[in-house]
Design a protein around this nucleic acid. Structure first.
Length: 221
DNA sequence: CAAACGATCGGCT
DNA sequence: GCCGATCGTTTGC
């Protein structure tokens, strides 16, 4: 059988609306996050993610299924952006998953720059230096990559699926073997008690565009 | 109405 | 490695 799958292929409702957010988080590694605001396209390969899951996850903003104005979008059907302000400064981008009524999300924590890198430098306020390799600080860390892609809290709730969306995720056919994925506890959730021990942070083991050291271990060694 | 608190980053030591 | 910035959201009085 010839492979007739045309790439790139935008991820569809069926991908996002499954109930296993941990599995979806892992599958998002290697996919390509794209923004196209005012016809300026920027894109990067997802290299680090974290899963959050209401109602039982104390680290999740919708813990206990509490609905607030901010978290309401997490309860909507999968395939939307949940973007919130962190520490008064950083705009953190999450992918809403699961069917309507289940508040699950995947925080995107790192991307490897692919397209529009000049714009990324501009948005980040980093001076372009063509000598040497791209600095990890360009798009490693959730606040950094959101800034590089022009993501902002005002886009929270936007669809990642509709044809006219300015934010979407593509499958470009990259296959990530399980042993290329590392796992560890989520960052910055010490307040979450036992839930802080859940190893729901995943990253591409060999990527430089990861927010913390590549310690911890590989999945399925 | 008041106040505490971040799913972080960058600058400085 | 440590520390301060900065402000919307949430909760408590």
């Amino acid at each position: 059988m010839p492979n007739l799958t045309p790439y790139p292929q935008r991820l569809s409702a069926g991908f996002y609306r499954r109930e296993d957010v941990v599995q979806i988080a892992k599958e998002l590694l290697g996919k390509v996050l794209v923004t196209a605001f005012d016809r300026i396209q920027t894109a990067g390969r997802i290299s680090e993610v974290e899963a959050y899951r209401a109602p039982d996850d104390r680290a999740c903003h919708a813990y206990g299924n509490r609905r607030t104005k901010r978290t309401e979008v997490m309860f909507q059907e999968g395939g939307r952006a949940y973007i919130y302000l962190c520490y008064g400064i950083h705009h953190l981008f999450n992918v809403v998953t699961a069917p309507e009524g289940m508040a699950h999300a995947v925080l995107i924590r790192g991307i490897e720059p692919l397209e529009g890198t000049d714009v990324m430098y501009q948005r980040r306020g980093i001076k372009l230096d063509t000598r040497g390799s791209m600095p990890a600080k360009l798009t490693a860390g959730p606040g950094a990559l959101a800034q590089a892609l022009g993501l902002h809290t005002q886009q929270t709730g936007h669809s990642l699926i509709h044809a006219d969306s300015e934010i979407w995720i593509e499958d470009r056919g990259m296959v990530i073997p399980e042993n290329a994925i590392a796992a560890g506890p989520r960052i910055g959730v010490a307040y979450a008690g036992e839930c802080a021990n859940r190893e729901w942070r995943f990253w591409l083991r060999d990527s430089r565009f990861v927010s913390r050291g590549n310690s911890s271990y590989d999945l399925k060694s």
